[in-house]
């Protein structure tokens, strides 16, 4: 089992994700450079938080053109596990691997704080260690986390149980309080909150670890 953490120019949670996988859940992990054209040999891919390409033009809008993203797209199509956290979620939306878009927060400001998430489904490879309705203490840190999708897309997400996490108190104006969603194949998760920052009790919460552990469970039983 090997995790890969993609480094885009401007990624800044790459080391945090790497640390959690290697030192907290104790699984093999390697960095993947954005110009790599293959992700062969990896079992799960993490698109970390940060400001890929400086968030210039629009968050994620340039990163989707990185050579590695076509490889990640194919990997996802073949059922590979992909998790995009924060900026990674934005990139997944821009790349069309997840529907919808992340707009500027309604407060127009970057917000960094701990908050509560409700788990909406345990039926994903990212939440199998959680139970439906379980509350998680996980921090956010973003200026563009206001999830938006058109009515039809939203209906599809809701009807198919693809909304994975919802905010208990909406910090950014996200429609339906959405904090994280999966794709139709349920193997690609995008979420704004940071499980990588909340996987150790000394940092205030170890709830985020459950998401990485779910991925490990899914890979073991695969």
């Amino acid at each position: 089992m090997k995790f890969g953490v993609v480094i885009f120019p401007g990624s800044n949670c790459d080391h945090d994700c790497y640390y959690v996988i290697e030192s907290v859940i104790g699984k093999p992990v390697e960095f993947i450079w954005h110009q790599d054209t293959s992700v062969q040999g990896f079992d799960a891919i993490v698109l970390p938080g940060g400001f890929a390409y400086g968030d210039y033009l629009r968050t994620g809008a340039l990163a989707r053109f990185s050579p590695v993203m076509s490889a990640v797209g194919e990997f996802a199509q073949q059922g590979g596990l992909v998790i995009g956290i924060c900026n990674g979620f934005q990139i997944l939306c821009e790349a069309g691997l997840l529907p919808g878009a992340l707009l500027k927060n309604v407060g127009m400001k970057y917000v960094c704080k701990y908050l509560q998430l409700r788990t909406e489904t345990a039926q994903t490879p990212f939440t199998n260690a959680l139970s439906k309705g379980q509350l998680l203490h996980i921090p956010i840190g973003h200026g563009e986390g206001n999830y938006f999708a058109d009515a039809e897309t939203l209906k599809r997400l809701e009807d198919n149980g693809r909304v994975v996490f919802r905010y208990m108190e909406n910090p950014n104006g996200s429609i339906h309080d959405i904090a994280g969603i999966v794709n139709g194949g349920r193997n690609v998760l995008g979420m704004m909150p940071h499980p990588d920052r909340s996987s150790e009790a000394i940092l205030g919460s170890a709830d985020g670890k459950l998401i990485f552990e779910s991925m490990v469970n899914a890979l073991v039983t695969k």
Binding site: N12, C13, H15, D16, Y19, V20, G49, K109, Y110, V111, C112, K113, P139, G141, H194, D196, R197, S199, E200, L203
Partner: peptide, 11 residues
Amino acid sequence: WEQYDHMVQSN
């Protein structure tokens, strides 16, 4: 300070 990312690097 909520406008500052005070948690990145997870330390």
